[in-house]
Simulated scan of single mutants.
Amino acid sequence: MTDRRGWWPELLLGLVAAGLGLANTRSGEPGATGGGWAPVIAVLAGLGLIGVRRLPWLVLLGECALMLAAGTVTVNGSGVAQLAAALALGFVAYRAGWPATAAAFTLFLAATVADVRALGGSATLSGSLGALRLAMLGGAAAAPVAFGRYLRGVRGTARIAEERARDAEARQEIQTHAARLAERAGLARDLHDIVAHHVAAIALRAGSARYAVQQTGDTDEAVLALGELRETAGQVLDELRELLEVLRDPEAVDSGGSQVEPEQMIRDAERRVREAGIAVRVTVSAALAAAPLVVRTTAARVVRESLTNTLKHAGSGAIASVDVRADDGVLLIVVRDSGPVQPQPALPPSGYGLSGMRERVGLLGGTLTAAATSGGGWQVRVALPIRENG
């Protein structure tokens, strides 16, 4: 019942109805067709169906007029006009609201009653038998209305379902895009912290090289430090390129896996602080590998950020330890250092510090405590639930 199919279905319907109506009148009794008007009315009624889909009200009016004319000028009326009017009534019920449908039903019922009275006389609808016939006519007239309204309801339900499907698809696209943006932001944050860690190591190694040249005259130590600086700077440039790529293209983020394995992050952080002149001992139990990825990644971030703080505030010559173990469904991370051996130069802030670590740990329902030790050092202790977040 849409316009996409063109006129040909209605044209075919009208021609078939006109042909059947004409054949029906030709097969009737001689002299019973009312002076030859029955074929004309049958053909007109059939051809009227050509516009029933686009102009149902106009077709209904025309078919009702033909019904009245058939009852007046013919003996047996025109069944084609009545069927065509019923079809037009169904289209009106499908396309219009209840007030227009009620008006169309009244018109069709009135034309049907007038046609019956013209054919059978006024006594046809009188008495109890007439009342029964009138009720049957009302029921027959209501059938196309019920069918049209049913199709309207089915079409409305289908339209609502399509709209809901489109809305759900749009929401899914928005959620997917938001997840990609969140993943991109998280990855950029991780890479920022890694770069900050490397820059802190570069600053300390540069200070060590300068100290070796100025205070001890040991050029070998300075050359070794400069070589390590070159290697670290190259890694920083690679990671900065990766960071820029992620920031430019959110679609480049693959949420299927972590960019850096947590265990590798811990090993890299240990190597950096060791190269910077800090004696570090790292103990990682097998519980870390068995923990969920999000817990492992957060633990690695805590270790890396804590060792970065040790680089910044304790400096070369300090002693640090990292202990990662499981205890009754909780992953414990303890990072402590001995404090600075000599005054440290002020370094620019990097990473997100304690506030960033608390935020990450809090998202997993964990706790973080950080405080100075009795020996002048610093300790960071984190407890991450394993089972709840697995």
Score class of each variant (00 low, 15 high):
Y150E: 14
R152N: 00
V154L: 10
G156Y: 02
T157D: 12
A158I: 04
R159C: 00
R159K: 00
R159V: 01
I160R: 10
R166G: 04
R166S: 03
D167Y: 09
D167A: 12
E169H: 06
R171T: 13
R171W: 09
Q175M: 09
Q175K: 12
T176M: 08
H177P: 04
A178S: 09
E183H: 07
R184I: 00
R184W: 00
R184D: 04
G186H: 09
L187C: 00
A188P: 03
R189Y: 10
R189I: 07
R189E: 10
L191Y: 03
L191N: 01
D193Q: 12
D193N: 11
A196S: 12
A196P: 02
H198A: 10
A200L: 05
A200Q: 06
A201R: 03
A201H: 03
A201G: 08
A203W: 00
A206I: 09
S208V: 09
A209K: 01
R210P: 13
Y211T: 15
V213R: 07
Q214K: 11
Q214S: 13
Q214V: 14
T216W: 12
T216Y: 05
D218W: 06
D218A: 15
D220G: 11
E221W: 12
E221M: 08
E221H: 09
E221R: 12
V223Q: 15
V223E: 15
L226R: 14
L226W: 15
G227R: 14
E228Y: 08
R230D: 14
E231D: 15
E231C: 13
E231I: 13
V236H: 01
V236Q: 04
D238S: 15
E239P: 10
E239Y: 13
L243C: 02
L244G: 11
L244S: 14
L244F: 14
E245D: 09
V246K: 02
D249A: 07
P250M: 06
E251L: 08
D254Y: 02
G256Y: 04
G256E: 08
G257R: 13
